[in-house]
Every structure is written in structure tokens, then in C-alpha cells.
Design a protein around this nucleic acid. Sequence first.
DNA 1: AGTGTCTTATTCAACGTTGTAAAGCAGGGC
DNA 2: GCCCTGCTTTACAACGTTGAATAAGACACT
Lengths: 341, 341
Amino acid sequence: MDRARVGLKDVARLAGVSVKTVSNVVNDYVHVTPATRARVTAAIKELNYRPNLSARNLRQGRTGIIALAVPELDIPYFAELARLVIAAAEERGLTVLIDQTGGVREREQLVAENFRAHLIDGVIFSPLALTPEDLAARMDDTPMVLLGERVYEGPADHVVLDNVAAAREATLHLAGLGRRRVAAIGAQDDVAAETSRLRLTGYLDALTTAGLPADDRLIVPVEDYHRADGAQAMATLLDSGAASDAVFCFNDLLALGALRTLLERGFAVPDDVALAGFDDIEDGRYATPTLTTISPDKAGIAGRAVELLADRIAGGSKVAAREVRVGHQLEVRESTRGRHA
Amino acid sequence: MDRARVGLKDVARLAGVSVKTVSNVVNDYVHVTPATRARVTAAIKELNYRPNLSARNLRQGRTGIIALAVPELDIPYFAELARLVIAAAEERGLTVLIDQTGGVREREQLVAENFRAHLIDGVIFSPLALTPEDLAARMDDTPMVLLGERVYEGPADHVVLDNVAAAREATLHLAGLGRRRVAAIGAQDDVAAETSRLRLTGYLDALTTAGLPADDRLIVPVEDYHRADGAQAMATLLDSGAASDAVFCFNDLLALGALRTLLERGFAVPDDVALAGFDDIEDGRYATPTLTTISPDKAGIAGRAVELLADRIAGGSKVAAREVRVGHQLEVRESTRGRHA
DNA sequence: AGTGTCTTATTCAACGTTGTAAAGCAGGGC
DNA sequence: GCCCTGCTTTACAACGTTGAATAAGACACT
């Protein structure tokens, strides 16, 4: 049976000491007699006292909460990332609150403006629709760490992946199999779609390196990066008559959608068409065939992001914006290699 | 350029009114002259004032934050659920904070004890390892809504699915295809594994109804409910020599894992073995073959859970624990129906 | 004994907000 | 001219916590 609201005051009364002494015990202040400490801890236990974070935070100006703003939680890549970020934050005693932007500009703007002012100490943000100008124009000075691909200059700390190199690698792998008509699924018109742009650059680079001609008909645009878009894009590609023998999809969901369409229409993967994705989500490892993909160091991204943010929160915003690069690796699986080996 | 910390006080000074008047404007109190309101809003904008939630919460005793405690965020079912819960909460002006328990008893106990006391107003909890006794013994009286399958008596509001009926339905569907050796993947020894127990009950019920004999060798236990466990379990089943022509997996991840093993070993699905899952996660709709599954009303679960919780938060803990049932539906797809139709 | 240092505990004020009570001010009816 | 009513604004206290300053006691060294 616990009283309605138990505060330091109540514990102090029960233990026969001052409020501040109880506070000292709670905060492991050094100079407290063992005897006093014992009496206080006993009282705390008896009353089932738990510190009121709102009050503590009000006093200290920090909440211990950070936000993770991602497009959608049920995109496996972001779900995996969220798990890792939450775990990394927990190690530092931080709690994570998730905001879903849906990739919608308006909502991303809210995040940039820090509409959760005073509730969060900082934000890890994976923007889709915002331009660098939007971010540079940001008024708020709450610490922020950007994830993802865009080449931002200066506005905030940034954890990036070498998208161009990774996309080049994946495409070269396809070309290295002897495929001559390598398509790309995942182009986007939107100027803000930086991920798409970088991966496309890597793809085109690779074609040049491999001595293959670029063919516009092999570059298929998509609306979004979900399975449905991949399935649709693959259908478009097949229907276009522009024969292709390999496809690099700009993420795994697109690849899984494309795979579905291929199998549905009776194509053999990789014999007729080889397929590579990007992200290394778990689905890809259990698809049939298993999916060749670029595997970004997700734990690294999460860990470094939390680290940068925690540092920024602790140290104020003294130092200039930092950029951290994390690694990636090509995972060759059945969708390009085939079943043997 | 925003000052370090802007408070009502600063706005009040600039607008030439009292602190309380500013507060009134912020809270849309009715009796404020349009003129005053205008002056104040101008000052708010100029200073880029944002209310301090810690202070507000301290005053009001509520934070507007609810927790969602699930095993893991990158289990697609929970990721989808999380998205829906966050969306539903947002409609009510609530913010969601996610706790990952990993299904570990110790961590679930922390959630039950409300280790985030004073930070959250309530919790939506999907426990795996806790027994009803654990929950009944809970000291804390923070509002809580339980999700999932267990038949809890009384401790808290509860949103449930009719697991037994759903499992029965799925199994009967398999039997209805003429399959005589219907296996089950997903049994668990642990007494606390109530989901497993209920789905097993439904499975056994269905066998009886269909006039099929139960065969222990067709019931495969798993450690966890991930793809890897399903793949492993399917391998065990195949290796055991206990021929089966259909498998009901207790969730979609298990089914996708099992599917992988079947295809890897050259079995045709559904011709050799028909396969059904549970949860209707998106992966299943893009697997080849697409996965027949039980589709729970996830939006319903999320919506009702938030509704119950919000109600409980508003109304205090007056009323007795409520139980809400949500529907489900059998989605017949290629893994049982085949490609035609 | 006097001075200084260290430990232990306390008092006070402040963080930013809002509920309560009350004050100031207008207009209407007598 | 006075009182009542209703609108608008205000002063004050309190939510639970902790940093700063301080008091009280113990002990050691001169």
C-alpha cells in the first residue's frame, strides 16, 4: 500500500533527518554517516519512494531523454536501428523517445524546430525530406545528431555512410558476375532525396568503371522505399522491354518487392536476373534466395550517434560540427551467387 | 538568436503583463482581451518561448508520456504495433516512450514495478515471461494495460485476442485442404509461455474436430519466436522422419524461417508442405509463396489499448479491470492455397 | 587554549509552471 | 451616487528537487 505521492519530505520525516540529507543519500553524496544512510534507505524502502524526475529535471535543466526521429518504425532498417539506439542510450542512462516523421517535410520541420523543447536533451534525426538549407536555418540549439546520407555542411554532428562507395561496390559485384545490363531501382525525382542521388551516383560510377553503357531505361524511379514500390518498379522494368540481367535496388525492401515480382512471373534469381539490395535487414537473410546486400555497420551508427549526442549534451555546443564515418560491407548471398558454394 | 532559457517570466516582462496572464494565453484561457492576447503572443514569438514540460508536469503531476513495453522493436509484429500505438497516442496528445524487455523476466519485472515512476503516466505492456502472480503482486498503481494473450484475472486492463479460436481456425484450414499430418512449430516448455500454450490448445482442438490424431512428434518446441528458431525447428521436424504435409507456425517469423528451410531442401510449398503463420506481418505478404496467416486487428489492439489507458489515466483507478477482445481474420495466401485462384 | 581543517547535517532559495483567491475595472439598474 | 455582476488581470503559494552557503561538531596541530 503506497501513499498517493511520496516525496523527499515524507522520507525525511520518517527517518528523522532533513530533506537535503535524504537527497544526499539518494544521490550517493559521500559525507553521510553509515548510520544515517541506513536509516534513510530503510525509510525509502518502507515508503517505496521514487525520485520525481520532473522535479529533478526542472532543477537541473536536463531530462535524460533523447529523441530518435525516423520516418517509420516498421521499416525494418529503422526498427533495427531503433533497437540499437535504445540499447546504446540505456548504457549511458538515457531514455529514448521515438518520433515518426513519415518522411513528411512538415513533420520533419517540427523535429528540427524541436517541438519537444524542454522535454528532450537532444535528438538523433534521420531526415528524408529536409534540405540542408532547412537544417541550417534551424533556430533551436538543442544538440542534434544527423544520421544518413546527406552531405550536410556544418549544421550539426553527423554520422554517415559512404553511400557512393557502397553503391559502387554493389554494382561492381553485379558487373563482376558478367552481367551486362545492370538496372537500378530506387531513383527519386525529388531534389531532397539525397540517399537516392548518392546511390545513383555510385551505380553510375560503377557502370563507367566496368565499361558498361548507362541506359536510362534501366533506371527505375520509385515513390517510396517500401516493398510495394520495389514490386511495382520491377514490374515496370519488365514490362518496358528493356531487358536486364541484374538489378541493384537502393534498399532491401525494394529488393524484396522486386524479388517477389520476379518469382511471381517465373524468372529465376539469380540465373535470369541477379539481385542486390542495401541495408542488410533480417528478412533478406531468410528470403529465398537469400539477398545479397550492402551491410552498413548499424551498431556503429547507433553507438557513434549516441556517443556524439551524449558528448554534445555534456559539453555544451562548443566544438564545431563533427562528421563520423561508419563502415559497410558487401554481403554476397544467393540472389547473386546462387545456391552452390 | 534565442536566449539561454526563456520562461513565462521573460515573456511577461516583454509584454508588460503578469506571468499568470502569459500562462493563461498559453493555455487558451477564455477571459483574455484580444489586445492582451495579441501582445502576449507577439512576445512569445519574439522570444521563441516554449513551455517547460518538466515544470508543467511537476505542477500537474502528469507528464503526458506513456510507455510501451515490448520484447523487441525489431520483431516486425511489435514494430507495426509500436507504430500504431504511437499514432493512436499522438491523437490524444500523448507521447510514447518505448522500453525493450527482451522478454527477460528481470526486465519485465522492472516494468511492472514501474521503474520509470513519475516519468510516465501509464504503460502498455506486452509481457512474455511474467506470470499472472507476478503481475498481481505489483505494488505500483500506475495505470497499466496488458496486451497479448494471457488470461489475466483482474490485475489490470487487458486487450486480448482469441488465440485459441484463431489457432483452431488456422489449423482447420490446413486440415480442410486434405492434409492429414499437420505439424505445429512454436511449442514452449516454459510455464510462463502462455501464448504458446493457447495456440497449442487451439491446434489440438482443431485436430480433434477434424478427426486427426495428435502426434507428439509433430509438435516442435522452440526457444524463441524468431526466424532462426523456425528454420531450426523445421529442420528438426524434417530430420525426425515424422512425415508431415502441413505446418502451423505460432507466428509469422517462425513460418518464414520454416519456409526458408523447406525451400532450401527442395520441398515445394504448398504442394509438399502447406504452411500457415500468425500475425500477418508485411514480410509474409511478399514472401514467395506468400504466407497464409492469422491477421489480428492490430490497429484495433493499439487503438483500444491507448483508449483504455487514457481513460484510466483520466479517471483514476476507480473501475474494475476491463478486458477488451479484438478480432482476427484468416488470410489465405499462396503458402496453402497455391498460386492459382 | 587557540586556530585550522575536515566531516556531517541543515537552511534557504530557486528551477518554471499553474490553481486559488482576490483585486481592479467596467457597465447596468436602482 | 451606490451596489451588484461579470469580465480581466494579478499576487501568492505550491509541486519535488538540488546547489550554495552555513552551522555544528570532531579532531589535530601549534
